[in-house]
Protein backbone atom coordinates (compact mmCIF):
# COMPACT_ATOMS: atom_id res chain seq x y z
CA UNK A 1 0.00 0.00 0.00
CA UNK A 2 1.40 3.35 -0.90
CA UNK A 3 1.12 6.31 1.41
CA UNK A 4 -1.91 8.42 0.61
CA UNK A 5 -1.48 12.12 1.05
CA UNK A 6 -4.39 14.14 2.35
CA UNK A 7 -4.00 16.39 -0.68
CA UNK A 8 -5.00 13.52 -2.96
CA UNK A 9 -8.10 13.13 -0.84
CA UNK A 10 -8.90 16.79 -1.33
CA UNK A 11 -8.39 16.55 -5.06
CA UNK A 12 -10.74 13.57 -5.27
CA UNK A 13 -13.33 15.39 -3.22
CA UNK A 14 -13.13 18.62 -5.16
CA UNK A 15 -13.79 16.78 -8.40
CA UNK A 16 -17.23 15.83 -7.15
CA UNK A 17 -19.75 18.54 -7.83
CA UNK A 18 -22.33 17.27 -5.34
CA UNK A 19 -19.70 17.28 -2.60
CA UNK A 20 -18.61 20.85 -3.35
CA UNK A 21 -22.20 22.09 -3.49
CA UNK A 22 -23.20 20.43 -0.23
CA UNK A 23 -20.03 21.43 1.61
CA UNK A 24 -20.56 24.98 0.38
CA UNK A 25 -24.15 24.99 1.55
CA UNK A 26 -23.21 23.75 5.01
CA UNK A 27 -20.40 26.30 5.30
CA UNK A 28 -22.86 29.02 4.32
CA UNK A 29 -25.21 27.74 7.02
CA UNK A 30 -22.42 27.96 9.59
CA UNK A 31 -21.61 31.50 8.45
CA UNK A 32 -25.29 32.47 8.72
CA UNK A 33 -25.42 31.00 12.21
CA UNK A 34 -22.50 33.14 13.35
CA UNK A 35 -23.79 36.30 11.68
CA UNK A 36 -27.49 35.74 12.50
CA UNK A 37 -27.81 38.81 14.78
CA UNK A 38 -26.45 41.04 12.00
CA UNK A 39 -28.41 39.46 9.15
CA UNK A 40 -31.79 39.13 10.82
CA UNK A 41 -34.05 42.13 10.23
CA UNK A 42 -35.95 41.54 13.47
CA UNK A 43 -35.39 39.86 16.82
CA UNK A 44 -36.54 36.25 16.37
CA UNK A 45 -39.14 36.39 19.13
CA UNK A 46 -40.51 39.88 18.41
CA UNK A 47 -44.22 39.59 17.87
CA UNK A 48 -46.12 42.03 15.73
CA UNK A 49 -49.74 41.11 16.24
CA UNK A 50 -50.89 43.69 13.68
CA UNK A 51 -49.02 41.93 10.88
CA UNK A 52 -49.89 38.28 11.40
CA UNK A 53 -49.29 35.71 8.63
CA UNK A 54 -47.93 38.17 6.07
CA UNK A 55 -46.86 36.51 2.82
CA UNK A 56 -43.26 36.86 1.53
CA UNK A 57 -42.34 40.07 -0.31
CA UNK A 58 -42.82 38.59 -3.80
CA UNK A 59 -46.45 37.63 -3.14
CA UNK A 60 -49.40 40.03 -3.08
CA UNK A 61 -49.58 41.93 0.18
CA UNK A 62 -46.01 41.17 1.17
CA UNK A 63 -43.58 43.86 2.27
CA UNK A 64 -39.81 44.14 2.43
CA UNK A 65 -40.15 44.81 6.15
CA UNK A 66 -40.71 41.09 6.55
CA UNK A 67 -38.91 39.60 3.51
CA UNK A 68 -40.23 36.07 4.06
CA UNK A 69 -43.45 37.08 5.76
CA UNK A 70 -44.60 36.50 9.32
CA UNK A 71 -45.99 33.53 11.20
CA UNK A 72 -49.17 33.16 13.25
CA UNK A 73 -47.75 35.30 16.05
CA UNK A 74 -46.43 38.01 13.73
CA UNK A 75 -42.86 36.84 14.12
CA UNK A 76 -40.47 37.42 11.22
CA UNK A 77 -40.04 34.10 9.40
CA UNK A 78 -36.66 35.08 7.93
CA UNK A 79 -35.24 36.05 11.29
CA UNK A 80 -36.47 32.86 12.89
CA UNK A 81 -34.99 30.79 10.05
CA UNK A 82 -31.66 32.58 10.42
CA UNK A 83 -31.58 32.11 14.19
CA UNK A 84 -32.72 28.51 13.73
CA UNK A 85 -29.48 27.74 11.87
CA UNK A 86 -27.64 28.25 15.16
CA UNK A 87 -29.20 25.18 16.74
CA UNK A 88 -28.72 23.21 13.51
CA UNK A 89 -25.03 24.08 13.29
CA UNK A 90 -24.31 23.42 16.97
CA UNK A 91 -26.04 20.04 16.77
CA UNK A 92 -24.35 19.20 13.47
CA UNK A 93 -20.94 19.78 15.05
CA UNK A 94 -21.31 18.45 18.58
CA UNK A 95 -23.51 15.39 18.15
CA UNK A 96 -21.30 13.57 15.61
CA UNK A 97 -18.17 14.31 17.65
CA UNK A 98 -19.77 13.15 20.89
CA UNK A 99 -21.34 10.03 19.41
CA UNK A 100 -18.05 9.18 17.65
CA UNK A 101 -16.08 9.58 20.89
CA UNK A 102 -18.45 7.43 22.95
CA UNK A 103 -18.84 4.85 20.18
CA UNK A 104 -15.09 4.60 19.54
CA UNK A 105 -14.14 4.27 23.19
CA UNK A 106 -16.66 1.46 23.65
CA UNK A 107 -15.60 -0.14 20.35
CA UNK A 108 -11.93 -0.14 21.38
CA UNK A 109 -12.83 -1.48 24.83
CA UNK A 110 -14.89 -4.25 23.25
CA UNK A 111 -12.36 -4.95 20.53
CA UNK A 112 -9.48 -5.28 22.98
CA UNK A 113 -11.33 -6.98 25.82
CA UNK A 114 -12.54 -10.27 24.46
CA UNK A 115 -14.30 -11.35 27.65
CA UNK A 116 -17.61 -10.40 29.23
CA UNK A 117 -17.13 -6.70 28.48
CA UNK A 118 -17.03 -7.38 24.74
CA UNK A 119 -20.14 -9.52 25.05
CA UNK A 120 -21.96 -6.90 27.10
CA UNK A 121 -21.09 -4.08 24.68
CA UNK A 122 -22.29 -6.17 21.75
CA UNK A 123 -25.61 -6.87 23.45
CA UNK A 124 -26.09 -3.21 24.32
CA UNK A 125 -25.44 -2.23 20.71
CA UNK A 126 -28.03 -4.81 19.59
CA UNK A 127 -30.56 -3.48 22.07
CA UNK A 128 -29.92 0.16 21.19
CA UNK A 129 -30.28 -0.48 17.48
CA UNK A 130 -33.51 -2.41 17.97
CA UNK A 131 -35.28 0.40 19.80
CA UNK A 132 -36.70 3.37 17.86
CA UNK A 133 -34.12 6.09 18.45
CA UNK A 134 -36.70 8.87 18.15
CA UNK A 135 -38.56 7.35 21.04
CA UNK A 136 -35.49 6.91 23.24
CA UNK A 137 -34.47 10.51 22.60
CA UNK A 138 -37.97 11.77 23.44
CA UNK A 139 -38.08 9.75 26.68
CA UNK A 140 -34.65 11.10 27.62
CA UNK A 141 -35.77 14.67 26.96
CA UNK A 142 -38.73 14.18 29.28
CA UNK A 143 -36.42 13.01 32.05
CA UNK A 144 -33.81 15.69 31.41
CA UNK A 145 -35.17 19.20 31.21
CA UNK A 146 -35.34 21.20 27.95
CA UNK A 147 -32.11 22.84 26.88
CA UNK A 148 -29.48 22.70 24.16
CA UNK A 149 -26.98 20.79 26.28
CA UNK A 150 -29.53 18.10 27.10
CA UNK A 151 -30.58 17.77 23.46
CA UNK A 152 -26.96 17.14 22.52
CA UNK A 153 -26.60 14.63 25.35
CA UNK A 154 -29.80 12.84 24.33
CA UNK A 155 -28.73 12.55 20.69
CA UNK A 156 -25.29 11.25 21.66
CA UNK A 157 -26.81 8.79 24.11
CA UNK A 158 -29.10 7.48 21.38
CA UNK A 159 -26.73 7.41 18.40
CA UNK A 160 -23.44 5.99 19.77
CA UNK A 161 -24.42 2.41 18.94
CA UNK A 162 -24.11 2.79 15.15
CA UNK A 163 -20.54 4.06 15.57
CA UNK A 164 -19.70 1.32 18.03
CA UNK A 165 -20.89 -1.49 15.76
CA UNK A 166 -19.02 -0.35 12.63
CA UNK A 167 -15.84 0.74 14.38
CA UNK A 168 -15.64 -2.43 16.44
CA UNK A 169 -15.81 -4.57 13.33
CA UNK A 170 -12.96 -2.49 11.90
CA UNK A 171 -10.90 -2.76 15.10
CA UNK A 172 -11.24 -6.54 15.08
CA UNK A 173 -10.01 -6.67 11.47
CA UNK A 174 -7.11 -4.26 12.02
CA UNK A 175 -6.00 -6.06 15.19
CA UNK A 176 -5.25 -9.15 13.14
CA UNK A 177 -3.22 -7.30 10.52
CA UNK A 178 0.43 -8.15 10.32
CA UNK A 179 1.67 -4.61 10.84
CA UNK A 180 -0.04 -4.60 14.22
CA UNK A 181 1.73 -7.82 15.17
CA UNK A 182 4.97 -6.31 13.90
CA UNK A 183 4.46 -3.23 16.04
CA UNK A 184 3.78 -5.39 19.09
CA UNK A 185 6.90 -7.49 18.43
CA UNK A 186 9.03 -4.39 18.07
CA UNK A 187 8.00 -3.42 21.57
CA UNK A 188 5.04 -1.10 21.26
CA UNK A 189 2.59 -1.16 24.17
CA UNK A 190 -1.11 -1.86 23.63
CA UNK A 191 -1.82 1.84 23.95
CA UNK A 192 0.97 2.67 21.54
CA UNK A 193 -0.49 0.22 19.03
CA UNK A 194 -3.98 1.65 19.45
CA UNK A 195 -2.72 5.18 19.03
CA UNK A 196 -0.36 4.68 16.10
CA UNK A 197 -1.71 1.64 14.24
CA UNK A 198 -5.39 1.11 15.03
CA UNK A 199 -6.72 4.66 15.24
CA UNK A 200 -5.36 5.75 11.83
CA UNK A 201 -6.95 2.61 10.39
CA UNK A 202 -10.44 3.47 11.56
CA UNK A 203 -10.29 7.11 10.42
CA UNK A 204 -11.89 6.52 6.98
CA UNK A 205 -14.94 4.77 8.44
CA UNK A 206 -15.10 7.31 11.22
CA UNK A 207 -15.18 10.24 8.81
CA UNK A 208 -17.95 8.62 6.78
CA UNK A 209 -19.98 7.77 9.87
CA UNK A 210 -19.60 11.25 11.34
CA UNK A 211 -20.68 12.88 8.10
CA UNK A 212 -23.79 10.69 7.97
CA UNK A 213 -24.44 11.41 11.63
CA UNK A 214 -24.71 15.12 10.79
CA UNK A 215 -27.97 14.59 8.92
CA UNK A 216 -29.23 12.04 11.45
CA UNK A 217 -28.55 14.40 14.35
CA UNK A 218 -30.09 17.41 12.62
CA UNK A 219 -33.23 15.39 11.85
CA UNK A 220 -33.33 14.07 15.42
CA UNK A 221 -33.17 17.60 16.82
CA UNK A 222 -35.91 18.78 14.47
CA UNK A 223 -38.10 15.87 15.55
CA UNK A 224 -37.52 16.73 19.20
CA UNK A 225 -38.34 20.39 18.67
CA UNK A 226 -41.31 19.45 16.47
CA UNK A 227 -42.62 17.48 19.44
CA UNK A 228 -41.89 20.47 21.69
CA UNK A 229 -39.15 18.70 23.66
CA UNK A 230 -35.97 20.36 22.56
CA UNK A 231 -34.27 23.59 23.56
CA UNK A 232 -37.35 25.17 25.10
CA UNK A 233 -39.85 27.70 23.83
CA UNK A 234 -37.60 30.79 23.86
CA UNK A 235 -35.20 29.59 21.17
CA UNK A 236 -36.37 29.45 17.55
CA UNK A 237 -35.77 26.10 15.83
CA UNK A 238 -36.85 24.85 12.43
CA UNK A 239 -38.65 21.91 13.99
CA UNK A 240 -40.75 24.19 16.18
CA UNK A 241 -41.42 26.46 13.18
CA UNK A 242 -42.69 23.44 11.22
CA UNK A 243 -44.91 22.46 14.12
CA UNK A 244 -46.31 26.02 14.42
CA UNK A 245 -46.64 26.26 10.64
CA UNK A 246 -48.85 23.17 10.51
CA UNK A 247 -51.34 25.00 12.72
CA UNK A 248 -51.66 28.00 10.42
CA UNK A 249 -51.31 25.99 7.20
CA UNK A 250 -54.72 26.97 5.81
CA UNK A 251 -54.29 30.72 6.30
CA UNK A 252 -50.74 30.90 4.97
CA UNK A 253 -48.54 28.01 3.82
CA UNK A 254 -45.26 29.95 3.89
CA UNK A 255 -44.42 29.68 7.63
CA UNK A 256 -44.65 25.91 7.07
CA UNK A 257 -43.10 25.62 3.60
CA UNK A 258 -39.97 27.67 4.23
CA UNK A 259 -38.62 25.75 7.26
CA UNK A 260 -39.55 22.45 5.57
CA UNK A 261 -37.58 23.55 2.51
CA UNK A 262 -34.57 24.59 4.63
CA UNK A 263 -34.73 21.32 6.52
CA UNK A 264 -34.82 19.27 3.32
CA UNK A 265 -31.93 21.25 1.77
CA UNK A 266 -29.83 20.85 4.90
CA UNK A 267 -30.49 17.13 5.19
CA UNK A 268 -29.70 16.64 1.49
CA UNK A 269 -26.47 18.63 1.81
CA UNK A 270 -25.40 16.65 4.86
CA UNK A 271 -26.23 13.36 3.17
CA UNK A 272 -24.33 14.20 -0.01
CA UNK A 273 -21.40 15.41 2.08
CA UNK A 274 -21.41 12.05 3.84
CA UNK A 275 -21.67 10.10 0.59
CA UNK A 276 -18.86 12.10 -0.98
CA UNK A 277 -16.62 11.59 2.03
CA UNK A 278 -17.31 7.89 2.33
CA UNK A 279 -16.64 7.35 -1.37
CA UNK A 280 -13.45 9.39 -1.24
CA UNK A 281 -12.16 7.56 1.85
CA UNK A 282 -13.22 4.04 0.86
CA UNK A 283 -9.79 2.43 0.63
CA UNK A 284 -11.06 -0.74 -1.01
CA UNK A 285 -12.82 1.11 -3.82
CA UNK A 286 -9.74 3.26 -4.35
CA UNK A 287 -7.48 0.24 -4.58
CA UNK A 288 -9.79 -1.28 -7.14
CA UNK A 289 -9.76 1.85 -9.27
CA UNK A 290 -6.01 2.21 -8.84
CA UNK A 291 -6.16 5.65 -7.30
CA UNK A 292 -4.40 4.71 -4.07
Amino acid sequence: MSIRLPSSLWRRLMRKRSFCLSAGFLLLLALVAVLAPMLAPHAPNDQNLLEVLLPPFWADGGSLDYPLGTDGLGQCVLSRLLYGTRIVVVIAITAPVGAALLGCVLALLGGYHSGWLNWAIDRFVDIWLSFPSVLLALILMVALSPGLQNVILAIIFVDWARFCRVIKAEVLVIRRREYVAAARISGASIYGVIKREVLPGIVPSLIALMALEISIAVVAESVLSFAGMSVGPGTPTWGAMISDGLGSMYSSPYPLLLPVLMMILTVLAATFLGQGLSEATDVRALERSGAA
Binding site: V219, F226, I242, M249, L256, V260, T271
Partner: peptide
Protein backbone atom coordinates in the same frame (compact mmCIF):
# COMPACT_ATOMS: atom_id res chain seq x y z
CA UNK B 1 -33.65 7.72 -5.08
CA UNK B 2 -30.53 9.28 -3.55
CA UNK B 3 -32.45 12.49 -2.92
CA UNK B 4 -35.59 10.81 -1.62
CA UNK B 5 -33.69 8.49 0.72
CA UNK B 6 -32.33 11.46 2.66
CA UNK B 7 -35.71 12.97 3.51
CA UNK B 8 -37.01 11.83 6.91
CA UNK B 9 -40.50 10.40 7.31
CA UNK B 10 -42.16 13.30 9.07
CA UNK B 11 -41.04 15.72 6.36
CA UNK B 12 -42.54 13.36 3.79
CA UNK B 13 -45.77 13.50 5.75
CA UNK B 14 -45.79 17.30 5.60
CA UNK B 15 -44.74 17.41 1.95
CA UNK B 16 -47.57 15.01 1.08
CA UNK B 17 -50.09 17.03 3.10
CA UNK B 18 -49.05 20.25 1.37
CA UNK B 19 -48.99 18.77 -2.14
CA UNK B 20 -51.67 16.07 -2.36
CA UNK B 21 -53.79 17.17 0.59
CA UNK B 22 -53.98 20.97 0.61
Amino acid sequence: NGIMIAIPDYLWAIVLIISLGV
